[in-house]
Structure formats: C-alpha cells, structure tokens
Design a protein around this nucleic acid. Structure first.
Length: 248
DNA sequence: TGCTTTGAGCATGCGTCCTT
DNA sequence: AAGGACGCATGCTCAAAGCA
C-alpha cells in the first residue's frame, strides 16, 4: 500500500518491540491522560495489529437499527449495488420501497446469523478494523493510528455520523470487558489538524449522535472508554525505536 | 499555494459457479 | 460432496485531482 502507511511504518515497529511485555505496556499506557489498570503476570491474552489487524463486525443492534430507520441512511444510487440484476439489488429495492415482508426477512437474517458478515443485502455496515487490539482477562484496549492523514474518519458509506473510533468501541459494547480507547498520532500533523478533532471525544453528545441505537448507559460506557492520545515522536524516544520515514 | 474532496488499490470474506 | 476460481461489497489509506 502507501509509502507512509501508519500500520507498517509505525504500529508494527512499535508493537514488534513491545509485544505482550507487561512492563513495556505499562510504560506505554502511562503516557495517556487517563489511567488504565496495570498489566501484570503476563496478562495479555490476544494482541492484534499490522498484518493481523482484528476485524470486528458491526453490532447486531446497529444493523437492526439501520433496518428500522432506513430513512436516516444516506441515499445511494442503486442502493449501493452495482449489478442491478443481482439478488441484493432486488431485495434492497423492495426494502427501501417499504415492503414489510422483506424488512422482516432482513431483521430475522441479522438476528439469526452467527457472525454478522459483510456484503449481505441486509447489512449496511461492515466490519471495523482497529489498528491496535489488546485483550486481557479484564479489559480490551483499542487504538487507532494516524500519521499523514489529515482527518479522522467520521462517516461510513451509509451513515453521516459514524466516527471510526466510536465504531471500534461500539463493536465491543456487547461484551463484558472494560474498554479503553485511544489514538496514536503524529505530532507535526496534529498541530495543524487534530487539535479540533480530539476535542470531539470530550463531548458526550458526540458519542450520542454516533450511537443512536444505544441506551444512555451504553453511551456513557463508550464515552468513558476514551483515555486520550499520544504521539509517535514521544514513543520513538521512550522506546528507542527508529521509525522508518517510508515503507520499503 | 495550500487545503479539501475524490477515488483507486489493497485486504478481506462470503456467495456462486464450475470442475473433479 | 468437496474444493478451487472468481465475483462482489465493504473498510481503510494514500495520492491525485479539484478548488478557493
């Protein structure tokens, strides 16, 4: 992919060094604004980044909400389907025309499917892929990494207000573990562009507008998961990692 | 010139069709 | 029946194109 790909030039070198090492993870998370529980006794059960990025399906409650609120979705030519002879096209056409039988079929499909999957006519949000995913017995840490990108991602194909980090968090809200979410950014980029974007996460109403299918308690949980953001420049120094300028 | 928008290319994963 | 090849829809990122 791109020369400046943050997964390859930043995330992978960082976590190849830190890995599942408790003390280094503690050093890392100490850098954030808000505290997280200590890593100890080889607490990491799963860690995903780089080539093994985790891909987590959108929550069923989101998919169901979208079906019940079709008018809130973006208007896409041909319902987002290229082949207008395909089953998907026929189904979506019926769905958007208000056919109740098709709606029921879609809702049933969403609730019955074991693992909700991409590319189904009744699925309007695919899998989200956090750049960093660390699971321990008690918690899940999810991080989004940015480097040369000037903006955070705040929308999906079908929804205007669907922030990327909040999608990551949302995908974990139905499980019990404590969630901690964060950004890894490049300082020189942040100076000009990110200051405003990071402020969004201090605003509960931003989470609310991105989580219309969730109740107050769940929105609070998502809001409180945000522990802040840190910079690659500081990580390079802290862990003595010579991050490559470009991917070879 | 510098910022914003668009879209191409990659990765992924399931469905469909075809071969064995 | 099993499995390989291909098609399709999606998210993600960067670079090119568009715009003020």
């Amino acid at each position: 992919m791109g020369k400046y790909n943050s997964s390859k030039t930043r995330v992978t070198p960082l976590f190849n060094k830190i890995g599942s090492d408790d003390s280094m993870l503690n050093e890392l998370f100490k850098l954030f604004k808000y505290k997280v529980p200590k890593f100890e006794n080889e607490s990491v059960l799963e860690i995903c980044y780089g080539k093994n990025e985790k891909r987590i399906p959108a929550p069923k409650s989101m998919l169901t909400w979208m079906l019940n609120n079709l008018s809130e979705l973006n208007k896409l030519p041909n319902y987002g389907i290229k082949n207008n002879e395909s089953q998907s096209y026929i189904k979506r056409k019926l769905l958007f025309a208000g056919d109740s039988k098709t709606l029921k079929e879609a809702i049933d499909a969403v609730s019955n499917v074991e693992k909700s999957s991409d590319s189904r006519w009744y699925v309007f949000e695919g899998k989200t892929a956090p750049d960093i995913y660390i699971k321990t017995k008690e918690s899940i840490f999810i991080g989004e990494a940015k480097r040369t990108e000037r903006n955070i991602t705040t929308k999906t194909l079908w929804l205007k207000n669907r922030d990327q980090l909040i999608r990551h968090i949302d995908s974990l809200l139905d499980q019990e573990k404590e969630i901690y979410s964060f950004y890894l950014l490049e300082n020189k980029t942040f100076k000009n562009y990110y200051e405003q974007s990071m402020k969004l996460y201090n605003d509960r109403s931003y989470f609310e507008s991105n989580l219309k299918h969730r109740n107050e308690q769940q929105i609070d949980r998502a809001f409180k998961s945000f522990i802040g953001f840190i910079f690659w420049e500081d990580l390079a120094e802290k862990f003595d990692i010579p991050f490559p300028e470009i991917n070879e």
